[in-house]
Amino acid sequence: MTFSDHYFDIDRLDRLSRKETFVHRLDPRVKTIATMLFLITVISFPKYEVAALVPFFLFPVLMLTLGDIPAGFIAGKILLVSPFAILIGLFNPFLDTRIVAVVAGLPVSAGILSFLSILLKFVLTISAALLLIATTSFPGVCHALRQLGFPAIFVSQLLLLYRYLFVLLEEAMRIVRARDMRSSGARGAGVRVFVRLVGVLFLRAVDRAERIYHAMLSRGFQGDLPTLRPSRVTAVDLAFLAATIAFLAGFRFSQVAEGIGRSAQELLR
């Protein structure tokens, strides 16, 4: 029985999200909205679009560098992420073999174009999500969701989930370690043991929830998790949002990459 590396990533992202940079200081609501707009814009490109997607890398690159996030870490996560989209996209070149171009003597099929398009969209969307959380603390995102109209009860338990994620992961690691010390090799890695182990973890979790509830009651809990976080949207935030929208609209509706390419051709000529 092994313990997934994902745990350490949560911890790393959590640490990164508490840095103090220009990007980190932006209002979480503004960042969340900007990210969602970015995603919708990227996804809205048609199936075979490749070149026009490239300029959109500017957004994650700016977030990454201005937010002082290590590029290698994000790149590593993108590579390791469950490759469902790529797996499905990989079929395209084999199924859509209409040749639409010949590059360097090699025929390019429509399927390759649509696969490349999926690949670019995949990297863009994944990095945008990761960079949102790497530059915004998770509680910040939760408060943003609350202010954007998500139900209070959803946000409350989301905050609690995040808080106890770290506690329960520690607990799970302790249980797994204790198990591993007493089982050699494959023994102890099966479903049967797993069930017992998770059962124990479950009972402890329920007891903990009860204790937390008492602690909450002792401090006047009435069904809500109030916070003093008068996050006000500043002029800088609005400027950021406006710039993002302008950037997205500009790159969506004009062929930047192609224009530059054509100018380059002209120059060379």
């Binding site: 609690l160 808080r163 479903v191």
Partner: peptide, 18 residues
């Protein structure tokens, strides 16, 4: 609190492979 902790529990359980 039960919901929050059980959400965290699902995560912890998912971290353990079998």
């Amino acid at each position: 609190p039960l919901m929050g902790v059980l959400g965290a529990f699902i995560f912890a359980a998912q971290m353990i492979n079998f």
